[in-house]
Design a protein around this nucleic acid. Structure first.
Length: 357
DNA sequence: TAGTCGTGGAA
DNA sequence: TTTCCAAGACT
């Protein structure tokens, strides 16, 4: 299967054309100005499912605050989450810190350069492992992301569904065959850079492509049809009442979310699923759930927030309570000016404007 | 395997 | 407006 796919494919010429193009056209990105495995690691975690333009400012600020594995290992998780606020996929931040602590404890603070040790770290999967080994340590390891699957699917005219995990394994085998042993870093980054700048998902710029002469999809006019990717299911909407509960000290009630699952360990204004409990039972539900007696006031606004796999429809209300504390450790009351000290998901960051005017 | 896990930008 | 998606990992 693999032999047939790669038969008559001029691997050395493809490598050379790709690497030459990459050297001449690569973007000047902060993580390309260093060989520090820790910094490259941080960049690769941030770049998971996230655009380069989004990552750049987060990376700069993160490295300034946590310049070494030791600095990150010693940091408070809440501070790390605050640095990650707005970037999404927050378990990446917590897994990174867990992994960095392991590197400090078990590897003397040096990022492992063996595939087995690196791949065992929390949050380091097949792609990230290959990226770190190739970019930081110049090892010829495949690093297959969405770009790589798209580029290789077109160049080699492969119509396997790239949404399937088994297809990713196929491309890892292909990447292992194609990767340059002379410059694995430039090869891997070159494929990704090509995917980001030229071999784009929609309307690829084939006329500007440095490997056009190697591309079977272009030769057959199939560049728009490849790669094949089945689409996921639609998100389900849940409606919540989100309450801006103020007490007589002008403090607002916020809640730390569970330590697992969606938006783990971030803070939010309390929410009630009004589909389930009914708007008329909210007060009782809140008392049962949080031990807080409150009166609901005016509606402050409405907010629709779209996640990857679900949608929140938030109906936002002002509310008043006489209490300044509860028995629930997840609940605290905070002055408006201190709310920004806590890591909030974007949906609840937006709610701050109803309080801070 | 398929679902979970965020966000903002492009077409 | 809707859809898709971006340098994935985990369960």
């Amino acid at each position: 299967m693999l032999d047939k796919t790669l038969r008559n494919f001029d691997i050395p010429a493809f490598q050379q054309d790709l690497i030459n193009w990459y050297q001449a056209n690569k973007r000047d990105l902060p993580w390309r100005r260093t060989q520090d495995p820790y910094k490259i690691w941080v960049s690769e975690i941030m770049l998971q499912q996230t655009k380069v333009d989004t990552v750049v400012p987060y990376f700069q600020q993160f490295i300034e605050k946590y310049p070494t594995p030791y600095a990150l290992a010693e940091a408070d998780e809440q501070d790390v989450l605050k640095s990650w606020e707005g970037l999404g996929y927050y378990s990446r931040a917590r897994n990174l810190q867990t992994a960095v602590r392991e590197v400090v404890a078990d590897y003397g603070g040096k990022v492992p350069d063996s595939p087995a040790a690196l791949g065992s770290l929390k949050g380091v999967g097949p792609y990230t492992k290959g990226a770190i080994l190739s970019i930081a340590y110049d090892q010829p390891q495949p690093a297959v992301d969405g770009n790589v699957m798209r580029v290789f699917a077109r160049v080699l005219n492969i119509d396997e569904d790239i949404a399937k995990p088994s297809t990713k394994k196929l491309f890892e085998k292909i990447a292992a065959e194609l990767i340059s042993t002379a410059d694995p870093s430039s090869f891997n980054q070159g494929v990704m850079e090509l995917g980001a700048l030229v071999c784009t998902p929609k309307t690829p710029s084939c006329m500007l492509c440095p490997v056009q002469e190697h591309c079977r999809a272009f030769a057959d006019g199939l560049e728009q049809e490849l790669p094949v990717k089945t689409k996921g299911k639609k998100q389900k909407t849940t409606t919540y009442a989100a309450l801006l509960i103020k007490n007589e000290q002008n403090q607002y009630m916020i809640e730390k979310r569970a330590e697992n699952g969606l938006l783990a360990n971030l803070w939010q204004f309390p929410m009630a699923p009004i589909d389930e409990i009914g708007m008329e039972h909210i007060t009782n539900w809140f008392f049962a759930e949080y031990g807080v007696q409150m009166n609901i006031g005016d509606k402050a606004g409405t907010l629709k927030h779209v996640f990857s796999h679900l949608i929140w429809q938030l109906e936002i209300f002002h509310a008043m309570t006489m209490q300044t504390e509860t028995a629930d450790e997840r609940i605290i009351f905070v002055k408006p000016e201190d709310l920004r000290l806590y890591p909030f998901p974007v949906s609840h960051q937006k709610m701050l404007k109803y309080i801070l005017d």
